[in-house]
Protein backbone atom coordinates (compact mmCIF):
# COMPACT_ATOMS: atom_id res chain seq x y z
CA UNK A 1 0.00 0.00 0.00
CA UNK A 2 1.61 3.21 -1.13
CA UNK A 3 1.74 6.26 1.09
CA UNK A 4 -0.28 8.32 -1.38
CA UNK A 5 -3.03 5.74 -1.37
CA UNK A 6 -3.05 5.70 2.41
CA UNK A 7 -3.16 9.51 2.49
CA UNK A 8 -6.05 9.64 0.05
CA UNK A 9 -8.11 7.16 2.05
CA UNK A 10 -7.27 9.08 5.23
CA UNK A 11 -8.31 12.40 3.70
CA UNK A 12 -11.58 10.91 2.48
CA UNK A 13 -12.17 9.39 5.92
CA UNK A 14 -11.62 12.71 7.65
CA UNK A 15 -13.80 14.65 5.23
CA UNK A 16 -16.49 12.02 5.73
CA UNK A 17 -16.11 12.44 9.49
CA UNK A 18 -16.90 16.13 9.13
CA UNK A 19 -19.88 15.29 6.92
CA UNK A 20 -21.16 12.66 9.32
CA UNK A 21 -20.82 14.97 12.35
CA UNK A 22 -22.63 17.63 10.38
CA UNK A 23 -25.54 15.36 9.43
CA UNK A 24 -25.63 14.02 12.98
CA UNK A 25 -26.35 17.52 14.29
CA UNK A 26 -29.44 17.60 12.10
CA UNK A 27 -30.66 14.03 12.61
CA UNK A 28 -29.19 12.90 15.91
CA UNK A 29 -29.37 16.16 17.83
CA UNK A 30 -32.24 18.19 16.41
CA UNK A 31 -34.25 15.29 14.96
CA UNK A 32 -34.51 16.89 11.52
CA UNK A 33 -34.10 13.96 9.17
CA UNK A 34 -32.30 15.05 6.00
CA UNK A 35 -31.73 12.68 3.10
CA UNK A 36 -30.10 15.30 0.92
CA UNK A 37 -26.97 16.15 2.81
CA UNK A 38 -24.74 15.80 -0.25
CA UNK A 39 -26.38 18.98 -1.53
CA UNK A 40 -24.71 21.05 1.22
CA UNK A 41 -21.46 19.20 0.61
CA UNK A 42 -21.74 20.09 -3.09
CA UNK A 43 -22.62 23.69 -2.44
CA UNK A 44 -19.44 24.14 -0.40
CA UNK A 45 -17.36 22.47 -3.12
CA UNK A 46 -18.94 24.34 -6.03
CA UNK A 47 -18.90 27.68 -4.22
CA UNK A 48 -15.18 27.36 -3.66
CA UNK A 49 -14.59 26.10 -7.23
CA UNK A 50 -16.40 29.07 -8.73
CA UNK A 51 -14.75 31.57 -6.43
CA UNK A 52 -11.23 30.33 -7.12
CA UNK A 53 -11.41 29.14 -10.74
CA UNK A 54 -14.01 31.45 -12.28
CA UNK A 55 -13.50 34.56 -10.17
CA UNK A 56 -9.81 34.12 -9.52
CA UNK A 57 -10.10 34.49 -5.78
CA UNK A 58 -7.33 33.20 -3.51
CA UNK A 59 -7.93 29.97 -1.54
CA UNK A 60 -8.23 31.50 1.93
CA UNK A 61 -10.90 34.12 1.20
CA UNK A 62 -12.67 31.48 -0.90
CA UNK A 63 -12.60 29.11 2.08
CA UNK A 64 -14.29 31.64 4.33
CA UNK A 65 -16.80 32.69 1.71
CA UNK A 66 -17.68 29.17 0.56
CA UNK A 67 -18.29 27.99 4.12
CA UNK A 68 -20.37 31.08 4.78
CA UNK A 69 -22.40 30.54 1.59
CA UNK A 70 -23.05 26.90 2.53
CA UNK A 71 -24.25 27.94 5.96
CA UNK A 72 -26.51 30.56 4.46
CA UNK A 73 -27.95 28.20 1.84
CA UNK A 74 -28.29 25.55 4.55
CA UNK A 75 -30.39 28.05 6.44
CA UNK A 76 -32.53 28.79 3.37
CA UNK A 77 -32.96 25.13 2.44
CA UNK A 78 -33.88 24.52 6.06
CA UNK A 79 -36.89 26.77 5.68
CA UNK A 80 -39.13 23.91 4.48
CA UNK A 81 -38.44 22.29 7.84
CA UNK A 82 -40.29 25.14 9.51
CA UNK A 83 -43.40 24.37 7.50
CA UNK A 84 -43.54 20.64 6.94
CA UNK A 85 -43.76 17.72 9.29
CA UNK A 86 -41.00 15.18 9.75
CA UNK A 87 -41.98 12.69 7.06
CA UNK A 88 -42.44 15.41 4.47
CA UNK A 89 -39.12 16.93 5.43
CA UNK A 90 -37.45 13.69 4.35
CA UNK A 91 -39.01 14.06 0.91
CA UNK A 92 -38.24 17.76 0.74
CA UNK A 93 -34.55 17.20 1.47
CA UNK A 94 -34.31 14.47 -1.18
CA UNK A 95 -35.87 16.96 -3.58
CA UNK A 96 -33.33 19.60 -2.60
CA UNK A 97 -30.50 17.17 -3.38
CA UNK A 98 -31.85 16.46 -6.87
CA UNK A 99 -32.49 20.13 -7.59
CA UNK A 100 -28.98 21.16 -6.53
CA UNK A 101 -27.33 18.43 -8.63
CA UNK A 102 -29.52 19.37 -11.61
CA UNK A 103 -28.46 22.98 -11.31
CA UNK A 104 -24.81 21.91 -11.32
CA UNK A 105 -25.58 19.72 -14.33
CA UNK A 106 -27.70 21.96 -16.51
CA UNK A 107 -26.77 25.54 -15.67
CA UNK A 108 -23.82 26.46 -17.86
CA UNK A 109 -22.27 28.73 -15.26
CA UNK A 110 -21.64 25.68 -13.07
CA UNK A 111 -19.75 23.88 -15.81
CA UNK A 112 -22.42 21.30 -16.68
CA UNK A 113 -21.57 17.59 -16.62
CA UNK A 114 -17.89 18.35 -17.23
CA UNK A 115 -17.69 20.12 -13.93
CA UNK A 116 -15.09 22.68 -12.96
CA UNK A 117 -11.43 21.81 -13.34
CA UNK A 118 -8.19 23.19 -12.04
CA UNK A 119 -8.96 24.16 -8.45
CA UNK A 120 -5.82 25.40 -6.69
CA UNK A 121 -4.31 23.76 -3.65
CA UNK A 122 -4.07 26.24 -0.78
CA UNK A 123 -0.71 27.83 -0.21
CA UNK A 124 0.95 29.51 2.75
CA UNK A 125 3.78 32.04 2.33
CA UNK A 126 3.97 31.31 -1.39
CA UNK A 127 4.31 27.56 -0.85
CA UNK A 128 1.51 25.40 -2.27
CA UNK A 129 0.53 22.45 -0.06
CA UNK A 130 1.82 19.07 -1.13
CA UNK A 131 -0.51 16.10 -0.80
CA UNK A 132 1.03 15.22 2.56
CA UNK A 133 0.71 18.75 3.84
CA UNK A 134 -2.84 18.89 2.61
CA UNK A 135 -3.66 15.71 4.50
CA UNK A 136 -2.29 17.33 7.64
CA UNK A 137 -4.32 20.44 6.88
CA UNK A 138 -7.51 18.35 6.61
CA UNK A 139 -6.55 16.60 9.85
CA UNK A 140 -6.31 19.95 11.65
CA UNK A 141 -9.73 20.98 10.39
CA UNK A 142 -11.18 17.65 11.48
CA UNK A 143 -9.80 18.20 14.96
CA UNK A 144 -11.30 21.69 15.04
CA UNK A 145 -14.70 20.34 14.00
CA UNK A 146 -14.61 17.48 16.52
CA UNK A 147 -13.77 19.89 19.33
CA UNK A 148 -16.40 22.35 18.17
CA UNK A 149 -19.12 19.69 18.10
CA UNK A 150 -17.92 18.31 21.43
CA UNK A 151 -18.09 21.79 22.91
CA UNK A 152 -21.58 22.43 21.57
CA UNK A 153 -22.73 19.07 22.96
CA UNK A 154 -22.29 20.51 26.45
CA UNK A 155 -24.32 23.65 25.94
CA UNK A 156 -27.94 24.67 26.25
CA UNK A 157 -27.97 24.73 22.44
CA UNK A 158 -27.73 20.93 22.51
CA UNK A 159 -30.39 20.61 25.17
CA UNK A 160 -32.62 22.83 23.02
CA UNK A 161 -31.99 20.47 20.08
CA UNK A 162 -32.74 17.48 22.30
CA UNK A 163 -36.01 19.04 23.41
CA UNK A 164 -36.95 19.80 19.80
CA UNK A 165 -36.19 16.22 18.72
CA UNK A 166 -38.11 14.65 21.58
CA UNK A 167 -41.28 16.73 21.34
CA UNK A 168 -41.79 20.01 19.54
CA UNK A 169 -44.78 21.14 21.65
CA UNK A 170 -43.05 20.33 24.91
CA UNK A 171 -39.92 22.10 23.67
CA UNK A 172 -41.94 25.24 22.98
CA UNK A 173 -43.52 24.99 26.41
CA UNK A 174 -40.08 25.35 28.03
CA UNK A 175 -39.03 28.24 25.81
CA UNK A 176 -37.35 26.54 22.84
CA UNK A 177 -38.54 28.33 19.72
CA UNK A 178 -38.76 25.52 17.18
CA UNK A 179 -38.13 27.68 14.07
CA UNK A 180 -35.09 29.25 15.68
CA UNK A 181 -33.59 25.92 16.72
CA UNK A 182 -34.32 24.28 13.38
CA UNK A 183 -32.57 27.17 11.67
CA UNK A 184 -29.61 26.82 14.03
CA UNK A 185 -29.37 23.12 13.17
CA UNK A 186 -29.55 23.66 9.43
CA UNK A 187 -27.10 26.56 9.52
CA UNK A 188 -24.51 24.67 11.59
CA UNK A 189 -24.94 21.54 9.45
CA UNK A 190 -24.63 23.68 6.30
CA UNK A 191 -21.46 25.36 7.56
CA UNK A 192 -19.77 22.07 8.42
CA UNK A 193 -20.85 20.30 5.22
CA UNK A 194 -19.65 23.34 3.28
CA UNK A 195 -16.27 23.09 4.96
CA UNK A 196 -16.12 19.40 4.01
CA UNK A 197 -17.02 20.36 0.43
CA UNK A 198 -14.27 22.94 0.30
CA UNK A 199 -11.67 20.52 1.68
CA UNK A 200 -12.75 17.81 -0.72
CA UNK A 201 -12.83 20.06 -3.80
CA UNK A 202 -9.35 21.44 -3.25
CA UNK A 203 -7.98 17.99 -2.61
CA UNK A 204 -9.44 16.58 -5.82
CA UNK A 205 -8.88 19.90 -7.67
CA UNK A 206 -11.95 19.05 -9.81
CA UNK A 207 -15.67 18.96 -9.06
CA UNK A 208 -18.41 17.14 -10.99
CA UNK A 209 -22.16 17.13 -10.34
CA UNK A 210 -22.13 13.37 -9.77
CA UNK A 211 -19.86 13.75 -6.76
CA UNK A 212 -22.82 15.17 -4.85
CA UNK A 213 -25.70 13.02 -6.04
CA UNK A 214 -28.33 11.29 -3.93
CA UNK A 215 -26.30 8.07 -3.34
CA UNK A 216 -23.66 10.22 -1.65
CA UNK A 217 -26.32 11.47 0.76
CA UNK A 218 -27.26 7.89 1.53
CA UNK A 219 -23.58 7.15 2.16
CA UNK A 220 -23.39 9.95 4.73
CA UNK A 221 -26.59 8.73 6.35
CA UNK A 222 -25.12 5.22 6.54
CA UNK A 223 -22.09 6.56 8.43
CA UNK A 224 -24.30 8.20 11.04
CA UNK A 225 -26.67 5.25 11.43
CA UNK A 226 -24.01 2.54 11.64
CA UNK A 227 -21.85 4.51 14.06
CA UNK A 228 -24.65 5.61 16.36
CA UNK A 229 -27.19 8.39 15.82
CA UNK A 230 -26.85 11.21 18.33
CA UNK A 231 -23.47 10.17 19.69
CA UNK A 232 -20.24 12.07 19.09
CA UNK A 233 -17.86 9.18 18.43
CA UNK A 234 -20.36 7.12 16.43
CA UNK A 235 -20.37 9.22 13.25
CA UNK A 236 -16.54 9.28 13.33
CA UNK A 237 -16.34 5.50 13.42
CA UNK A 238 -19.14 5.22 10.88
CA UNK A 239 -17.24 7.55 8.54
CA UNK A 240 -14.12 5.39 8.71
CA UNK A 241 -16.08 2.19 8.10
CA UNK A 242 -18.02 3.56 5.15
CA UNK A 243 -14.86 5.06 3.62
CA UNK A 244 -12.75 1.94 3.98
CA UNK A 245 -15.41 -0.64 3.17
CA UNK A 246 -15.45 0.02 -0.61
CA UNK A 247 -11.65 -0.12 -0.60
CA UNK A 248 -11.62 -3.50 1.10
CA UNK A 249 -14.51 -4.80 -0.96
CA UNK A 250 -13.16 -3.63 -4.31
CA UNK A 251 -14.93 -6.42 -6.16
CA UNK A 252 -18.26 -5.19 -4.78
CA UNK A 253 -17.81 -1.58 -5.83
CA UNK A 254 -20.68 -1.68 -8.30
CA UNK A 255 -22.96 -2.82 -5.51
CA UNK A 256 -22.14 0.06 -3.19
CA UNK A 257 -25.74 1.20 -2.86
CA UNK A 258 -26.86 -2.36 -2.20
CA UNK A 259 -24.30 -2.65 0.59
CA UNK A 260 -25.29 0.72 2.12
CA UNK A 261 -28.90 -0.43 2.07
CA UNK A 262 -28.10 -3.74 3.70
CA UNK A 263 -25.98 -2.04 6.37
CA UNK A 264 -28.77 0.40 7.24
CA UNK A 265 -31.43 -2.33 7.39
CA UNK A 266 -29.17 -4.60 9.41
CA UNK A 267 -28.24 -1.84 11.87
CA UNK A 268 -31.84 -0.76 12.30
CA UNK A 269 -32.93 -4.31 13.06
CA UNK A 270 -30.11 -5.55 15.25
CA UNK A 271 -28.55 -2.48 16.85
CA UNK A 272 -30.66 0.62 16.35
CA UNK A 273 -28.30 2.63 18.53
CA UNK A 274 -25.39 1.95 16.19
CA UNK A 275 -22.01 0.57 17.12
CA UNK A 276 -21.11 3.19 19.70
CA UNK A 277 -24.59 3.38 21.21
CA UNK A 278 -24.75 -0.40 21.60
CA UNK A 279 -21.31 -0.71 23.17
CA UNK A 280 -22.09 2.09 25.61
CA UNK A 281 -25.31 0.31 26.50
CA UNK A 282 -23.42 -2.92 27.16
CA UNK A 283 -20.83 -1.28 29.39
CA UNK A 284 -22.78 1.37 31.27
CA UNK A 285 -26.27 -0.04 31.12
CA UNK A 286 -29.26 1.82 29.76
CA UNK A 287 -28.65 5.25 31.22
CA UNK A 288 -29.21 8.38 29.20
CA UNK A 289 -26.63 10.32 31.18
CA UNK A 290 -22.94 9.54 31.00
CA UNK A 291 -21.21 8.17 34.07
CA UNK A 292 -19.14 11.31 34.50
CA UNK A 293 -22.18 13.51 34.49
CA UNK A 294 -24.02 11.35 36.99
CA UNK A 295 -21.05 11.57 39.32
CA UNK A 296 -20.78 15.31 38.87
CA UNK A 297 -24.47 15.75 39.67
CA UNK A 298 -24.13 13.50 42.71
CA UNK A 299 -21.26 15.65 43.94
CA UNK A 300 -23.22 18.85 43.50
CA UNK A 301 -26.41 17.48 45.05
CA UNK A 302 -24.40 15.87 47.83
CA UNK A 303 -22.66 19.17 48.55
CA UNK A 304 -26.06 20.61 49.33
CA UNK A 305 -26.27 18.17 52.19
CA UNK A 306 -28.53 15.76 50.35
CA UNK A 307 -28.07 12.25 49.16
CA UNK A 308 -28.39 11.80 45.43
CA UNK A 309 -29.73 8.95 43.40
CA UNK A 310 -30.25 5.30 44.03
Amino acid sequence: MSLDYFLTVSVFSMINMILALSLNILIGYAGQVSLGHAAFFGIGAYASAILTVKLGMGYWPALLLSVFISGLIGLLLGLPALRVREDFLVLATIGVNFVVVSIFNYVKFFGGPYGILGLPRPSLFGHAFTTREYALYVFLWTLVVVFLVHYLSNTYLKLGFDALREDEDAAESVGVSSPRYKMYAFAIAGLLAGLAGNLWAHYMTVVFPDNFSFPVSIGILTMVVIGGVGTLVGPLIGAIIVTILPEVLRFARDYRMLIYGLIIVFTMFFMPKGIVGSIKGLIFGDTPLGKKRVEKVRRIAGAQGRIAGR
Binding site: L159, A163, E166, D167, S173, V174, P288
Partner: peptide, 18 residues
Protein backbone atom coordinates in the same frame (compact mmCIF):
# COMPACT_ATOMS: atom_id res chain seq x y z
CA UNK B 1 -45.02 14.83 26.70
CA UNK B 2 -41.88 14.27 28.69
CA UNK B 3 -38.60 14.29 26.78
CA UNK B 4 -38.60 10.48 26.73
CA UNK B 5 -35.03 9.58 25.98
CA UNK B 6 -33.59 12.26 28.27
CA UNK B 7 -33.05 11.63 31.95
CA UNK B 8 -35.47 13.15 34.45
CA UNK B 9 -32.71 15.53 35.48
CA UNK B 10 -32.25 16.73 31.90
CA UNK B 11 -36.00 17.24 31.56
CA UNK B 12 -35.84 19.65 34.48
CA UNK B 13 -32.61 21.26 33.25
CA UNK B 14 -34.35 21.84 29.92
CA UNK B 15 -36.99 23.87 31.73
CA UNK B 16 -34.35 25.95 33.49
CA UNK B 17 -33.05 27.08 30.09
CA UNK B 18 -36.16 29.13 29.37
Amino acid sequence: KVFSSLSVLENVLAGLGV
